[in-house]
């Protein structure tokens, strides 16, 4: 019964107060998520993806509708809905270990000291960060920081893991690495995950469902795409998979034709070509 609607967003809408009156960012967002599902939110910049995530996290309060997790209404932030922030948001004055430990302290009342230490180390191990536990965030790379951020979130043993463009600031290689780690961890732990992304490949590779959002203001869910690819998924094998490419195409079509932001892909391409031509001319 709980497995049916683990996390439920019903008629969620939010108005932000602005000097020019209320700004309706979201309206009528309805989404039912099952336990263990991996959901991606995709949409153009500024459409309200982060807002949806923050409402689930409890950091924003919906003006209309609401969020229900396992039968309880969500109305404040809490560790059962752990967030991985876009820019890692580690406390810069604490080492990787201490950052995770702070989360563990807050969430594990029954654990003994030794059990806590094991749990912190276990989670850092999960994201392959055991070698740098005593480093400050300033002393490790962006990808490593993001790993520690994920470890911190996982260590809270959340019912739902919320990730706001977790790999947005990383280079392609590091990103692929972390995507693989996330798939592994998701397969092991079976957390429910809601992840925001801008990257179509990432969305198709990781998700069970891709939630595509319309452009704001008054953004809502445009389409939901079920990804029925076998797990475990392998990025190399999928590259030539027609099913995979079909899904990619679906998402791209939604983003660049149905919800094109300012210009169509064709126009964009034309412009880009124009630019390179201009560049060539200037070189000549």
């Amino acid at each position: 019964m709980t497995a049916k609607h683990h996390l439920e967003l019903t008629q969620v809408g939010i108005d932000f107060p602005t000097p020019k009156g209320p700004f309706t960012a979201l309206t009528d967002v309805n989404l039912k998520i099952q336990k263990g599902e991996f959901i991606s939110l995709i949409g153009h910049s500024g459409c309200g993806k982060s807002t949806v995530l923050n409402i689930i996290a409890g950091l924003h309060k919906a003006t209309k509708g609401g969020v229900i997790l396992d039968g309880h209404e969500v109305n404040e932030p809490g560790p059962e809905r752990a967030v991985v922030f876009q820019n890692h948001s580690l406390l810069p004055w604490l080492t990787a270990y201490k950052n995770v430990e702070l989360a563990v302290r807050q969430t594990s009342k029954g654990r003994s000291k030794a059990e806590m230490r094991d749990w912190v180390e276990h989670n850092l191990e999960l994201v392959h960060m055991s070698h740098a536990v005593d480093k400050l965030p300033a002393e490790i790379s962006g990808g490593m920081k993001q790993r520690v951020g994920i470890a911190r979130a996982l260590a809270m043993e959340p019912k739902v893991l919320l990730m706001d463009e977790p790999f947005g600031a990383l280079d392609a290689l590091t990103r692929a690495h972390l995507q693989d780690s996330i798939m592994e961890i998701h397969a092991d732990l079976g957390n429910t995950v809601v992840m925001i992304t801008h990257d179509v490949d990432e969305a198709v590779l990781l998700s069970d469902r891709i939630v595509m959002m319309t452009n704001g203001p008054s953004a809502t869910i445009g389409e939901i795409l079920d990804i029925e690819l076998q797990r475990p998924r392998d990025r190399l094998a999928l590259a030539d998979n027609p099913q995979y490419n079909h899904y990619r195409h679906e998402v791209l079509t939604f983003l660049y034709e149905k919800q094109r932001k300012v210009e169509s892909v064709a126009e964009h391409r034309k412009k880009a070509q124009g630019k390179t031509k201009a560049n060539d001319a200037s070189v000549a």
């Binding site: 996290a57 409890g58 950091l59 560790p79 948001s89 807050q106």
Partner: peptide, 27 residues
Amino acid sequence: IDSDLLNVSKVLRLGPFSHVMKIVMPS
């Protein structure tokens, strides 16, 4: 203080004392 760090504190449900000692004072 960086609003992201405040959000971290909220998600972790730090009490007022821990909030001041762990987040507010160091930053």
